[in-house]
């Protein structure tokens, strides 16, 4: 379990980091919870590792009144750890779904070190964040030495372990909306018992008004190569009263038309079935929390 040797840089500024990765063949190290296991197994053997952990600029978690979302946005620096996100008073009050998702990742030692930027850039198809980020319609702010761009999460994640990130580009921050008052939320997952990764994981946000469900967002991870928004479920539930029967009817569509994964933990059929079950659970809890 000893990685291949590599050159190591630990820049202290974003500018320095961008110059280092612009040279090519560098792999970026954030918390290392995904990269280091890959390097130990020699599934990854980068020549050069650029450790971002000493760049203070990438750790900020703050609110921005305007900008990316009409109701305001939370900007999560790429190096914000899962523990920082689950325990941040700001995130818990302004975007509680994200805090709930973060608290479900791995175990405490992993959450103390792993980062939202690293996890998002790694794009593991069984990671927890993508379900929440899809349901939140989050954005990913990317930067190079020459310029910046912002992509919706759905365009940023391309497929399993594959993103729109260019070799000379870094994830600078993840941007999520400040939640509208009264929005109910839930993240429910079937965890693989040893690793804690999601066999399937479902994040839901809902709003109600005058006895009707007015807004539904559902993000699903673990089922397919890429996390996705279950838009059929959303459309079916919106406009209903949100009864148990309405939830079951909508959740039954959660895995429709999806090319489901099979691996040693679960067959495609089992994953599809569990996606329906966990979608119903997430919607039920989210509706119970909405007011």
């Amino acid at each position: 379990m000893i990685p291949q040797n590599f050159e190591y840089s630990a820049p202290t500024s974003l500018k320095e980091a961008l110059a280092l990765i612009a040279k090519g063949d560098a792999k970026v190290l954030a918390g290392g919870m995904s990269l280091i296991p890959l390097m130990k197994l020699r599934l990854a053997a980068p020549e050069h590792v650029v450790d971002l952990s000493r760049i203070a600029d990438l750790k900020s978690v703050h609110e921005d009144g305007k900008g990316e979302f009409p109701g305001g946005a939370l900007h999560l620096g790429a190096l914000a750890t899962h523990f920082e996100i689950e325990s941040s008073a700001l995130v818990r009050s302004k975007c509680p779904l994200l805090a709930e998702v973060a608290s479900n990742i791995g175990d405490v030692q992993v959450r103390n070190v792993g980062t939202i930027g690293g996890s998002t850039a790694h794009a593991d198809p069984a990671a927890d964040y993508p379900a929440g980020l899809m349901a939140l319609e989050a954005k990913v702010h990317l930067t190079t030495a020459k310029g910046e761009r912002t992509l919706p999460i759905d365009q940023f994640i391309v497929d399993a372990l594959s993103t729109a990130l260019k070799p000379n580009e870094l994830v600078r921050e993840i941007i999520v909306p400040v939640e509208t008052r009264g929005t109910g939320f839930s993240y429910q997952k079937l965890a693989q018992p040893a690793s804690g990764f999601a066999v399937v994981g479902v994040a839901a946000r809902v709003r109600k008004s005058a006895g009707k469900v007015t807004f539904v967002r559902v993000g699903v991870t673990g089922l397919a190569g890429k996390a996705f928004r279950a838009t059929r479920v959303e459309k079916l539930l919106e406009g209903t009263s949100g009864s148990a029967a309405d939830i079951q009817k909508a959740a039954a569509q959660a895995a429709e038309g999806v090319d489901a994964n099979t691996d040693l933990h679960a067959s495609a059929d089992y994953r599809r079935q569990m996606t329906k079950v966990f979608t119903a659970r997430a919607l039920t809890q989210a509706l119970s929390r909405a007011d």
């Binding site: 190591y8 919870m33 280091i36 130990k40 450790d51 030692q109 103390n112 070190v113």
Partner: peptide, 19 residues
């Protein structure tokens, strides 16, 4: 392999000494 790094529990098998 859990140790504390700056007061936080971490798995020292998944961290390089240089970090």
């Amino acid at each position: 392999c859990t140790v504390e790094l700056d007061g936080k529990a971490v798995k020292s098998c998944t961290m390089f000494a240089v970090q």
